[in-house]
Simulated scan of single mutants.
Amino acid sequence: MSAADLSGVTWRKSVRSGALGNCVELAVLQGDAIAMRNSRFPDGPALVYTRAEIAAFVAGARDGEFDDLLN
């Protein structure tokens, strides 16, 4: 497996992220991929998922499947 080329991608984060920048950032990559990284470590590693994987996670979050993690 090779590393994804993340040079020149546009990273986005939620407007709900904290003032200290403690949030997750996402970037659309070529093909069917989306990269995710920790905004506190912009030069650190990024995880790469397919659009279907991100869609499944977002749908689960909208449905409250992960709400128990916040307790």
Rank of each mutant, 00 (worst) to 15 (best):
L6T: 04
L6H: 06
L6M: 06
L6Q: 07
T10F: 09
K13Y: 09
S14K: 15
S14G: 13
V15A: 14
R16F: 15
S17C: 06
S17H: 00
G18L: 12
A19S: 04
A19H: 03
L20S: 13
N22H: 15
E25S: 05
L26E: 05
A27Y: 09
A27F: 07
A27S: 12
V28G: 07
V28H: 14
L29N: 02
L29Y: 02
Q30I: 04
G31T: 08
D32W: 02
D32L: 03
A33H: 15
I34E: 07
M36W: 03
R37L: 06
S39M: 07
S39Q: 07
R40A: 05
R40G: 04
F41P: 02
P42R: 09
P42E: 06
D43C: 00
G44Y: 02
A46D: 05
L47H: 03
V48I: 13
V48N: 11
Y49I: 05
Y49M: 13
Y49K: 08
R51S: 07
A52Y: 10
A52I: 09
E53V: 14
E53R: 15
E53P: 13
I54L: 11
I54S: 02
I54R: 04
A55I: 01
A56T: 12
F57N: 00
V58L: 09
V58T: 03
A59G: 12
G60S: 07
G60M: 04
A61D: 11
A61W: 12
G64S: 11
G64I: 14
G64C: 12
E65R: 09
E65L: 06
E65F: 00
E65K: 12
F66W: 11
D67W: 03
D67I: 02
D68V: 09
L69H: 04
L69R: 08
N71H: 08
